[in-house]
Each structure stands twice: as structure tokens, then as C-alpha cells.
Write a protein that binds this DNA or RNA. Structure first.
Lengths: 259, 259
DNA sequence: TTAATAAGTTCCGATAATCGGAACACAGGG
DNA sequence: CCCTGTGTTCCGATTATCGGAACTTATTAA
């Protein structure tokens, strides 16, 4: 076991990463327990993080939460590569045509992160906030993302993941999921029917670069009452078309990005 | 000189903070030069940051940029304390009533960070993107923010800052700025007339908590052609009212924030 | 094509920062 | 009032970290 790279930095980043939508505020002991760090170090790391504005301290609870500087730097990600800008009009069109909520997501390890959401018009609103994480194995976006990777890469991600069932429909076996990925590859989009949340369906397709590398995933989310599985096929084709447009739009602005 | 707290973490965070709207992509040597770090360490830190998803690498330029995980964690900041949610309807009303672009900002050190922006309807669009930094001494939001602090705190921030002139109207002397803060305190809002950008004006007011602590700053931005200085006084009173509403809205949801 | 410059990574041993246990301070509940 | 849980600071031993230099790729110039 060797010290490959900055170990303390790794620890600090694990601390920062331990904040989530579900648990946006954490105390020193809480974090130390979860990451198996000493309270001493955890406290020191949090001091450093606070000093640089990456965490704040809730004055009333005295617990920590992500800070302004984390927000500032993080928001730069959206603007990188013009992904968000390129996707915005396409998502708007998707919403206009289908009435359902449209999402832009990105793969990170074994989870999908929502980068942008555009609310649908329908009376039924099932919206996931920007920044939220979804497991790669339960979501349409996850399947779409994995389907762009080499099968062995996808498989190793799935094997390293927990594959917890969120509904009776969730696929929790690697083999089943690999079959699903093949299907997604074949038809160009992924359809998720209540595998993540009961009563909710979603279709997704990935935008890729010239080398086939994953750039982002577009999706639509809606209640199962709002569209049949047959109708979902048509929605899937819509999303596929949208993702292709996004791929093209991103390729167009590639050439030289000034300087 | 003693090691008060995690020094390497501090270095890593300085690297992360060196990304900005103006320079969203940086190389190893570039960063090392600017922060006076060795290339060796800089490279190692960036590896750690990359491993945890806090930076990405542009596959074509091989330069680094903020990563998805930075975005995910950063976006949690917005949801903390419900600041953004509470501000949204108020900002919408400001835009509806004035037609100008409305901003929500937060103080971080000697700079203001834009948390949210809502575009005005007017033909003239002067919009600043979310995440952008503005110097505290040149902006209406900065003056509004500082006016809520104790004068000596405000003064020490100003003295530590660069006070670079951005236009001929920019106040660059601490004394002048302190006078300005007193005026802002007295009238409840700050008016910025081309001190940040030629041809652009802005009015701002701060929302504060029960202890008078700064929670956020609301502002309106517009071209100087769109409203006279007299009309700006009325706009300032509007923003003041909006900020009071925001303070009240935040106080309302304080009691117990579930668990 | 080759040479020359610059960027990025890895190696190395000396050094200094980091680590965790324990002691301390503080808050809230029983 | 004690007790439990939290957060911070101290300390010396240890170990991860540091930067110079060597090495590998890119990039540019000739």
C-alpha cells in the first residue's frame, strides 16, 4: 500500500462529498463516524474547508453545510463545454412537445447527477431538484449513460455498486442489467417503468462526442398514468432525436474554443 | 508561524478556488505559477481532485475544469436555509413590477457571488451569470452587504481588498466607501450609478436575520438610459421592501427545520 | 524530418506537516 | 447536579508530503 497522491486532500474531499440532498447539514462527530476518521482530523479539515468558504456553519445548529465558494466553483461546471447552453433550447422543445418535465444529467461514478430540469406543464408534477443524485441502476438516465460505455466498463461499475431495489420493478442483478443495456443500445433510448419510483416512468437517451464518449443524458419524467408503455416508445424516440441534436450542437461548437 | 490546520487541504482548496468565470480551464503549470506551488504538488492535488470528481479534464485541451461533484455539492448551498426558495417569488414580483433583471447575491470575503438571476423583460439585457463574482466595493450589492456589518468589520474588509477602479465613478478610497455605507444604512438601500460598469446602474438591499446578520442581498440591474437617478430612488425603495419581505419569509420558516 | 521548448508526471530522500489518543471545554437532558 | 455527546486543542511519534531533478509526452519551430 503506497501513498499514490495527496491523502489528506482525499479525506477533505470525502468530507465535502458526504453532504447530500438528504443530509445537507452534518456535524463533526457525525462525519467522523461515517467516514471512519478521527474527530480531531475531521474538525481540522472542516476548519480548512470553512476558511476557504467551501462549508458554512449554521449558526443555530452549529452544524456544517456546503458554502458559497462551493457553489461558485460548482456553477462553473455547468458552463464548461457549453453542455447546459446547448441543451437548454432542446429541453425547451421537448417540454413544449410532450408537456413532461425534461432533465439533463451527467454520470459520476455509479450515480447520475441532475444538471438541469425544465418543468412540464401538466397538472401532475414529479420534479427532482437540480444536483440530486440517482443510482445508475434504477434510472432511465443511468441505463442510457451506461449503454454508451464499453460493456466491461459498464459491468464493473454495476458490480461495484449496491444495486438496492427501490421498487418491486427495480433490476438488481448485473446480468439483467447488462441485458437491459444491450436493449437500450439497440433501440437508442432507455425506458424506465417504475423501477425507481412507483407510479413514475422515464425515457432517456445519451448525447455522445465524436469518439462516442458520453457527454450528457437527456430524459423525460412523467407519471405512469400520463402515458402508456406504447406511448412511451414514441416519447423514447423523441428523446433519442433530442439527444442526437445535442450531440450535433456540441460537435458544432468544438473546433477551437478560443485561445 | 504554526500549523493551525490542514495545510495541504488549504492548498488543494486554493487550487479549486482558482477557477473562475473568466478562466474556467487551467493547466497544471498555470496554476502552479499563480499560486506559487511546485508543479509536482499541483499535479498531485489535481489528481486527488479529479479522482473525487471535483475537477474534470477537458479531453482535447487536457486542461482542468470544475467537475460534476463540485456542482452537486455546490448546488446544495442554494437549498440550505431556503434562501433561494424564499427569494424566488419575491424576485419574480420585482421583475414583474419593474421589468428589470433581479439578482440574489451573497457575501464571500471581499466579493459578492451571484446566487440567482431572473431576467427582466426589457429590450436591453445586461445579465450577469449565476456564480459570477463582483468586487464588494464596486457593486450595489456589495455596499448593501457591508452596510449590515459592524463598521469596523466592513472597514477591515475594505482595507484588505484591492479597491481597483472599474470606471471613473468607482469609489477607491476607504473613507469614501465608509461614507457611502453610512448613507446606505440611512436610506435602507444602495444605489450604484456606473461605479461597476459604464452605462449600468443597480439598486440593492440586504435581507437580515433576527440578530441583524446578513442572509442575502436582492438587487435590480438596468441601463442608466432606462431610469433616471430620481426614478432609481423609487426602485431602491422597492428593493428595500422586497428585502424586508425576504427577511420576514426566512424568519417564518426558522422555528424548527424538521429533524 | 529534426530540434527545441514547454507541459505534465514520477522518483527520491529529507523534512515538516499530519495523525489520533487523551484531555479539555461546553451544551443539553435526565 | 451529573452524565452523555459534541467539538476543539495539545502532544509527541510517525508518515505522508514536499520540491528538485529526471523522465515522458505534446507542441512548435526550423
Amino acid at each position: 500500500m503506497e501513498a499514490e497522491f495527496s491523502l489528506s486532500t482525499s479525506r477533505a474531499l470525502r468530507i465535502l462529498s458526504s453532504f447530500s440532498e438528504d443530509r445537507p447539514e452534518l456535524g463533526v462527530s457525525e462525519i467522523a463516524r461515517e467516514l471512519s476518521l478521527s474527530k480531531a482530523s475531521t474538525s481540522r479539515f472542516l476548519q480548512a474547508l470553512e476558511m476557504h468558504g467551501f462549508v458554512d456553519r449554521n449558526p443555530v445548529t452549529r452544524k456544517f453545510r456546503p458554502g458559497v465558494e462551493a457553489f461558485r466553483v460548482g456553477s462553473l461546471f455547468l458552463r464548461a463545454g457549453g453542455l447546459n447552453e446547448a441543451a437548454a433550447p432542446i429541453m425547451a422543445r421537448l417540454v413544449a412537445e410532450t408537456g413532461f418535465t425534461s432533465y439533463l444529467s451527467s454520470l459520476r461514478g455509479d450515480t447520475m447527477v441532475i444538471l438541469a430540469a425544465l418543468e412540464g406543464r401538466g397538472p401532475i408534477k414529479y420534479s427532482i431538484p437540480v444536483g440530486e443524485k440517482l443510482p445508475v441502476h434504477t434510472s432511465a438516465t443511468g441505463h442510457a449513460a451506461l449503454s454508451t460505455l464499453k460493456p466491461d466498463q459498464a459491468e464493473s461499475i454495476l458490480r461495484a455498486s449496491q444495486l438496492v431495489a427501490r421498487t418491486p420493478f427495480t433490476l438488481t442483478e448485473v446480468d439483467r442489467l447488462m441485458e437491459r443495456l444491450a436493449q437500450v443500445r439497440a433501440q437508442g433510448f432507455s425506458l424506465n417503468w417504475q423501477e425507481h419510483t412507483a407510479g413514475v416512468a422515464s425515457v432517456a437517451a445519451a448525447a455522445v462526442g465524436t469518439e462516442g464518449e458520453l457527454l450528457g443524458v437527456l430524459s423525460l419524467g412523467y407519471a405512469t398514468m400520463q402515458a402508456s408503455q406504447e406511448e412511451s416508445q414514441a416519447l423514447g424516440r423523441e428523446v433519442r432525436k433530442a439527444a442526437d441534436e445535442l450531440s450535433a450542437a456540441l460537435k458544432a461548437r468544438r473546433p477551437h474554443e478560443h485561445d
